[in-house]
Amino acid sequence: MKTILWATLTANGNYAQSSPEHPPKMEALGDFAAQARAMGNFIVGRRTFEGMQASGGNPFGEVDIVVVSQSVKDIPGVKVVESPQDALDYLQRKGHTTALLSGGADLHNTFLGQGLVDEVIFNVAPVMEGKGLNLLLDQDHYQYQDVQLLDCKPLGGGVIQLRYALGQE
């Protein structure tokens, strides 16, 4: 199964953090919703999913949502699994050939560290943040991985989307 990691980064390379004072860019959110509908699914961590619920509503329609959590076992309307591989296995059993990994940073880093990501979509927002989280290939060892640029396009509002295929080591 092909797995695509989707994330918004700041112009200075941090994993973008949003808050009520600094909400995510609408262009990036619109792109995520379009990607999720096109793939028919997305995988998300529990805390990120709770943040999505707090913002109200489900704009995704009939999209299969998989929440990865080791502490919560049941959330109405979504599938809850304990590991990244469980999420991919579930979506494959449902007939999906591509999985969209949507967040948060800890889950992204777990998928990357386990070598479960084939492509990344980075939406670079026109903001800079003094502190933030980073996306890591391996949290225990330094790694270097070539990537291949597949696409680059403006989404509007100063947001630029970069899409890369991860290289083979």
Rank of each mutant, 00 (worst) to 15 (best):
I4D: 01
G157D: 15
G156Q: 10
V68W: 00
K153P: 06
E50V: 06
Q148G: 13
D31Q: 03
D151L: 06
K131L: 09
S71L: 08
Q145E: 10
E119A: 09
Q53Y: 06
G45H: 03
P154C: 05
S18E: 03
I75M: 15
M128C: 13
Q85F: 04
N12E: 14
V72M: 09
T8E: 10
N41A: 08
G130I: 06
V117W: 00
N134F: 12
R46G: 13
I121L: 02
I43H: 01
F111T: 00
Q85Y: 03
K73W: 02
G115E: 02
D64T: 06
V147A: 15
P24E: 06
S71N: 15
V81G: 03
V124L: 14
F60D: 04
V72E: 14
D118M: 08
G77K: 14
R93S: 14
K73T: 12
N109M: 08
V127A: 08
Q139E: 11
I160R: 05
E129K: 13
G51Q: 06
G40Q: 12
A33P: 02
V127E: 08
P20I: 12
E62W: 01
D140H: 13
D106Q: 05
L29C: 07
T3D: 06
Y15Q: 05
S69I: 08
P23L: 05
H22W: 10
L5Q: 01
Q161F: 05
K2V: 07
L107F: 07
Y15W: 10
P154R: 11
G77R: 09
Q92Y: 11
K153H: 12
L107M: 02
V81P: 00
T8A: 15
Y142I: 12
T10V: 09
K79W: 10
D118H: 10
A11P: 01
I75F: 13
H108L: 00
G130R: 14
T8R: 07
V66M: 03
G132A: 12
D140P: 05
T48A: 14
L166K: 01
G45L: 01
